Computed example of a mutant assay.
Amino acid sequence: MSINVKISDELGAEAKRYGRIYQRSLPKQIEYWSRIGKIAEENPDLPFSMIKEILLAREEGEHEMEEYTFG
């Protein structure tokens, strides 16, 4: 699902800059920051390096795991 959201020019410019560095589009960079923020709020004791590893593992797991049907 796609939604239009207004963000400040400053945030948009910073997200574009980081997106170029990490080869992400503007929306993907903002989604990435959003996921990091959500995990950080839910787990305040986790260091940033651990959060990055969690996101990487989730990304790899989505591509490698196939649904298994019992029976």
Rank of each mutant, 00 (worst) to 15 (best):
L11Q: 01
L11E: 02
G12K: 13
G12R: 09
G12L: 08
G12S: 14
G12D: 03
A13R: 11
A13Y: 09
A13S: 13
A13V: 00
A13N: 14
A13I: 01
E14Y: 11
E14S: 11
E14N: 10
E14M: 07
A15Y: 10
A15W: 06
A15N: 03
A15G: 07
A15P: 11
K16G: 12
K16M: 12
K16P: 01
K16S: 14
K16C: 07
K16Q: 14
K16N: 11
R17P: 07
R17V: 01
R17D: 11
R17Q: 14
R17M: 10
R17K: 15
R17N: 09
Y18D: 00
Y18P: 00
Y18L: 14
Y18W: 10
G19S: 08
G19A: 08
G19M: 04
G19W: 12
R20D: 12
R20H: 09
R20E: 12
R20P: 02
R20V: 02
I21P: 07
I21Q: 13
I21W: 05
Y22F: 13
Y22A: 05
Y22H: 02
Y22C: 01
Y22S: 02
Y22P: 00
Q23S: 07
Q23M: 02
R24G: 07
R24N: 06
R24F: 09
R24Y: 10
S25A: 11
S25K: 08
S25Q: 01
P27Y: 08
P27M: 05
P27S: 12
P27H: 07
P27E: 00
P27D: 02
K28S: 10
K28T: 03
K28I: 00
K28M: 09
K28G: 05
Q29G: 06
I30V: 15
I30N: 04
I30E: 01
I30F: 12
I30S: 04
E31N: 10
E31P: 08
E31W: 06
E31V: 02
E31T: 11
E31R: 09
Y32M: 08
Y32P: 03
Y32F: 15
W33V: 00
W33P: 01
S34Y: 12
R35F: 06
R35T: 05
R35A: 13
R35S: 11
I36M: 14
I36A: 13
G37K: 07
G37R: 05
G37H: 05
K38F: 10
I39T: 02
I39C: 02
I39S: 05
A40W: 05
A40P: 01
A40T: 06
A40C: 05
A40G: 05
E41V: 04
E41N: 07
E41F: 13
E41P: 00
E41W: 04
E42L: 13
E42G: 08
E42W: 01
E42C: 06
E42R: 08
E42D: 14
E42T: 03
E42Y: 04
N43H: 15
N43R: 10
N43P: 06
N43C: 08
P44C: 07
P44H: 03
P44W: 10
P44V: 02
P44Q: 04
P44K: 04
P44A: 08
P44S: 03
D45K: 15
D45T: 15
D45Y: 15
D45A: 15
L46W: 15
L46M: 13
L46V: 03
L46T: 01
L46H: 01
